[in-house]
Design a protein around this nucleic acid. Sequence first.
DNA 1: AGTTACAGTTTACAGTGTTTATATAAATGA
DNA 2: TCATTTATATAAACACTGTAAACTGTAACT
Lengths: 238, 238
Amino acid sequence: MNGAVQTRRGRLQEQTRDEIKAVARRQMAREGASALSLRAIAGEMGLTAPALYRYYPSRDELITALIVDAFHALGDVLEGARGTVVAEAHANQFVAMMHAYRAWALAHPAEFTLIYGTPIPGYHAPEVVTDPAVRRSLAPLLALLAAAWQAGKITPDPAYAAPPPPLGERFGAMLPGAAGGRVPTAALHVGFVAWAHLQGIIMLELFGHIAPVVGDPELFYAFEVRVQLLRLGLAPPG
Amino acid sequence: MNGAVQTRRGRLQEQTRDEIKAVARRQMAREGASALSLRAIAGEMGLTAPALYRYYPSRDELITALIVDAFHALGDVLEGARGTVVAEAHANQFVAMMHAYRAWALAHPAEFTLIYGTPIPGYHAPEVVTDPAVRRSLAPLLALLAAAWQAGKITPDPAYAAPPPPLGERFGAMLPGAAGGRVPTAALHVGFVAWAHLQGIIMLELFGHIAPVVGDPELFYAFEVRVQLLRLGLAPPG
DNA sequence: AGTTACAGTTTACAGTGTTTATATAAATGA
DNA sequence: TCATTTATATAAACACTGTAAACTGTAACT
């Protein structure tokens, strides 16, 4: 019943939990997301495989933890990128964020495909756990969108002026609380599509489908980011 | 040295090779692309696992064969979809093809993610084998693009009028032979981007990232297909 | 000091892809 | 028709995988 000691133990537990994840990440970076082996992780920590079951009830739950972590890391990177640009320059913020998005994906391909690709043998992520993480990873982008709208800097592409009625209904739920009501669905619609567009391109690049066609993927991507500014009606950076 | 007998044997060989692939596909559809097991495949055929090595030198090569097949199947479906629409209605052809694209992906999720997702433990597809297959799968789309251009039906989005010079250089290589020279790089550029756009959206949908945000993925996709018509400057179907 | 809770190991099981050596059946040549 | 060659499949074994159960220490708490 001693609270202090319990939390100390708890801290030790969480510390090794973190170490396990760190080793797993290092191993994924080297051998690929699928070569993840409990015995290898344990071995690198001077343990045996079953010991890990004290910290994660199964390999799948470890993977889920890695996924949640990755979403959070991606969210942090986006938020950081936004911070490097002055608050008023929404277009520049968007460009910075989306380039940080791609940079993170290229720097952590295993973790990125763990998030947005088919991850691992028969594994399927439990949405209950991952959904909040997904929201967190996209929160900075949505915040930027809302801020830019509030500043009157967004004029959605006319193509999105009149979508089929039922389409816009759920977009508002992306933003937390009452904020959803403030941004019109057209803006949320183009915003979501812009994200999906760039996300899809990064994915294709990671699987090698962009480079052979385009030559310089970075240049191609940069151009597409600019195009998304047009779609959003965000004035390109001068 | 008896040619006739040899080819008869060869036919038997290829017949069981095909059966192996068929069983593998059925198993993938049931248990997912990653649960693919040689022993399970062999068992379903009344064989044992090592027997399969007479037909494929390794599991990876079997997977590669499945990938190549999938690309071809996808290409066939696209070509078939185009055939259901009169030759002059290029916009309608595009719509039909891209909806067939998505329909195939949803009907064969395992095979589709095998192609465009991280497929399987540590497996990486040999580009030498898969590259021609990729080309084949996109050939119908490119043919449509070329035909529509020749008919003067394409007016690429002005945003793509002045891309960074080195970008367009390789687009021509997508089309076979001299055909590449006929279609301007701007048209090829928007065409490729339109494909990447829809392909990326389908991918996201398969991984469950579209439905929770959008409600009705089919409606969302249909709208995006229409938007791509605008980007291509193809008159929408009347 | 005695008890309880935790951390870790050992052992074992059911799987996996793959290799080697061996048996069997089929097709060929004399 | 018989003997020889060739293709086909198998059984056994290897090195792996994740996971479950039983057991052994060690640290903390009463």
